[in-house]
Design a binder for these strands. Structure first.
Lengths: 345, 345
DNA sequence: TCGGCGGGCGAGAGCGCTCTCACCACGCTG
DNA sequence: CAGCGTGGTGAGAGCGCTCTCGCCCGCCGA
């Protein structure tokens, strides 16, 4: 726990280099329009003094912070312990770092905490926000719109996907689900069940839609609602087994639930994939590769989603390529998914 | 992607309330020494204008940022996809939020990235740092010491645990390991093996030490070195089975490896816990509760560790309780662990 | 009645930076 | 040779806030 030492200012560097503050500032910010001799002298002075610009002073005048908030609404513990989020964060971090932006992490803890986040975002501490709004009734997006801060959402927000100004990055949940179910059908399975995620999340709803796209008039008994947790997957699988003992395939809306379903199937004496084929969603390696048998699943590139979110936001902030006047406002992106075949289907 | 609106300044509030800037500032910062009438008037003006203080301007003069950096060295992907880290982050976030501090997340991507982090920390953007230094040869701690910024480490740093000025928060890895092995011994097991974590991390080394504390002259063949991954656990278990077919218990240095070991044991036809008892470490719910059988393990309160790290740092920053002159410099904390009995031992 | 004292408030000086603008010295054209 | 850019530099005015002073006024004791 050392204490912070007094830091040299622009003024000090200027004095040492024998130039004005303005010149030092120019050099520090790229050095355009300064003679090479002076650039050299200033650089030397900066090094010798160990000068580092004071970001607060800089922000005060530029009104830029080179910082982006990442907001994670986290009503339940589950969400955060999820590697899904960690991977996305990693992608975000990489992209922000590459553009010299800092990542300010805002986790909400319960209801009244939203106000705090709203205040922070409105407070102009950051240049933009990346928001993970998971549930339909989340008040957060509303607050953020009010804060009037450039924002990109992770996952399609449930409210008003039609609003043009809303920018989000999502996987092709519906298409991925279709691929999964078609694959099962291609295996000759006909009694294909679906274990849904928490349906107040668009990802779950979209995957269900994808399932229905293929199973046009599916037996409603083949659909069991769950919540993305392994325990929920187990429960749903038990229900399914009871309601439809003739089930010969299961598409679970994520890998965690698929792993739960696998356990229940094994417990019930069914062989996978011989008796019942199983497909998950996400391709979370630690889960999907370690199940018995290894899980066939729909892969989404989670890290890439994070990277893309950051890129979109930064672009909207015109940090980048301010060339074309047209179409500078970025629009939402939906990333493709791929089916990964392993042992379970 | 809305644009930021021009925000009212202190000056504007002062004008509206008919007082000076100084008075508004006083009210905004607690309102001591200002007559109630004026406090009221100022509060009203603040509300009406929607005034939010400009943090940059404030920091410029106070030299405080109310922001803490969380630095995660992440040479491998594994570390970050680990729920362990997410939980710790959550604890940190809670504590920081409670004290109105922001969390700036710094992830390092490879070697040369350390310099960037060092620069950032030295740049005086944050008031302190929370650092997860996982490996012995990590250059990060060195850089941070040089940056001269108050720091608390997550987990005992490998280098110089004797240095007094180093503050860290850790679990009682050694004690927890002892408990686990004693429990196995208490079950009447005598051929107790240990699957280690990556031994360049102190947590792994400490757990091995704890194992040795109990198994004083353990057969070296009973110790298999692994790396905290499920795959590593599997490999180690296979080795163990080959070297010592008579093994009747396994203490794995984390739950992930224990789950891998479990799979191998099942594959080899051994019954758990009848033939071989298994204990893990961490008590990661999603893993430990879902194995077959559910895993007996050593629980550490990960979220509490995070909370404590933040608390220690904040205290060192004298944000809190500046009462006692003595002992304000916080010292390291080692949290106790508890054995959680489930089905595997 | 008057001096002194102290609480409440405002004036003003920065904090460290960026950015506009004026200035200076060139070198070029007419 | 006058005139006019033009590229390089410095002076200075802020950005929005905090905080130290010093002033004013009301109240006390003498």
């Amino acid at each position: 726990m050392t204490d912070t030492a007094p830091r040299p200012t622009l003024e000090a560097v200027a004095a040492r280099a024998g130039v004005s503050r303005a010149t030092v500032s120019r050099v520090v910010n790229g050095g355009d329009g300064v003679r090479d001799v002076l650039v050299e002298r200033v650089r030397k002075a900066v090094d010798e003094l160990g000068y580092v610009p004071n970001q607060a002073a800089r922000s005060l005048v530029t009104r830029r912070h080179d910082a982006i908030a990442v907001v994670v609404a986290e009503p339940e513990t589950r969400v955060f312990a999820d590697p899904f989020f960690a991977l996305q964060l990693r992608g975000i971090s990489k992209e922000l770092t590459a553009h010299d932006n800092q990542l300010v992490l805002l986790l909400t803890e319960g209801r009244d905490d939203h106000a705090r986040v709203g205040r922070y975002l409105a407070g102009g501490h950051v240049d933009g926000a990346l928001v993970f709004s998971l549930h339909l009734d989340d008040p957060l997006p509303e607050l953020i719109q009010r804060a009037g801060i450039p924002t990109v959402f992770g996952g399609r927000p449930g409210w008003s996907a039609d609003r043009r100004e809303v920018v989000y990055v999502d996987s092709d949940n519906r298409g991925g689900a279709r691929d999964a179910v078609r694959h099962l059908a291609g295996l000759g399975r006909s009694r294909i069940a679906h274990i849904t995620g928490a349906l107040d999340q668009t990802s779950a709803a979209d995957r269900l839609d994808g399932y229905r796209d293929v199973m046009v008039d599916a037996d409603p008994l083949l659909i069991a609602e769950a919540d993305f947790t392994p325990a929920g997957g187990e429960r749903a699988m038990r229900e399914l087994l009871e309601r439809c003992p003739d089930v010969d395939a299961v598409f679970a809306a994520n890998d965690l639930m698929a792993s739960g379903a696998l356990r229940v199937l094994r417990g019930s004496g069914r062989r996978v994939p011989d008796d019942v084929a199983v497909i998950g969603f996400d391709d979370m390696r630690p889960v999907a590769e370690q199940t018995d048998p290894p899980l066939t699943t729909v892969r989404q590139d989670i890290e890439e989603m994070g990277r893309l979110m950051a890129r979109l936001l930064l672009r909207g902030l015109d940090r980048d390529a301010p060339r074309e006047g047209v179409g500078t406002t970025p629009s939402s992106v939906v990333l493709p998914t791929t089916l990964v075949r392993r042992g379970s289907a």
